[in-house]
């Protein structure tokens, strides 16, 4: 039963929202390599979403290109989700390991990524009056991904419906806290750096004199 290759497992998971991840868990399937590849695709998708739309769907500011916001919007956000979910669900008797959370969540993102790529391509063939098609695709993609993500968290931790919702809300709170701490840490590092560099400048002046 269910002797699928890793690639077939991806297909199985995203086409069976209710049972797909349960089956994966039962068969201990899922590859971290594929998960990382999906996150990389997410990163590309976020860039495409930001810059590659057809000209009739808005102008992008092309005087500068800064890659940091795109990294934050894709890779950092995903990492924060995994870490946040793992920290919360370890406390809430979740059965998922960090590795499994990462794999299942990444698989769940596939419809969202596909939606972006389809829309970016379509935007070069459609005019503004036909934007409704793109909106429909977007809603389907985002909705599908949301359902998959819910199902993924539910099966990776073996939670009930209510507890999954609770865990997801707590995960978002945890992500915000992490973000806050990160900003705090950054400014602290900056202060320390400035302090050290000031001392260095001061000393270097003294030595020269």
């Amino acid at each position: 039963m269910m002797d699928l290759t890793q690639r077939e497992w991806v297909k199985h998971a995203i086409t069976h929202p209710a049972e797909g991840f349960e089956d994966m868990r039962w068969k201990k399937a899922g590859s971290l390599k594929i998960a990382f590849f999906i996150v990389f695709l997410l990163f590309l998708a976020v860039i495409a979403d930001g810059r590659l739309y057809g000209f009739q769907f808005g102008v992008t500011y092309d005087k500068t290109f800064n890659i940091i916001p795109y990294i934050v919007k894709s890779i950092v956000l995903f990492a924060a989700w995994v870490v946040g979910n793992w920290s919360i669900c370890t406390l809430l008797d979740g059965e998922g390991t960090a590795k499994n959370i990462c794999i299942y969540s990444a698989y769940a993102l596939i419809p969202y990524i596909a939606q972006i790529f389809i829309n970016v391509i379509l935007s070069h063939f459609l005019v503004q009056d036909e934007v409704v098609f793109m909106n429909a695709i977007r809603i389907i993609g985002v909705g599908w991904s949301a359902i998959l993500l819910f199902s993924a968290i539910k099966s990776v931790h073996q939670y009930s419906f209510g507890k999954t919702i609770f865990a997801i809300i707590l995960t978002i709170v945890a992500m915000l806290i992490m973000l806050f701490l990160l900003v705090l840490f950054m400014s602290l590092v900056q202060q320390v750096y400035i302090f050290i560099s000031t001392i260095y400048t001061e000393i270097s002046y003294r030595i020269r004199v």
Binding site: F125, V127, D129
Partner: peptide, 19 residues
Amino acid sequence: YAELADSPRIYNKAFEGYR
């Protein structure tokens, strides 16, 4: 020229005709 003018509105109309 619409692209040079950064005007998606005109580009949209021109593209519709072009397509």
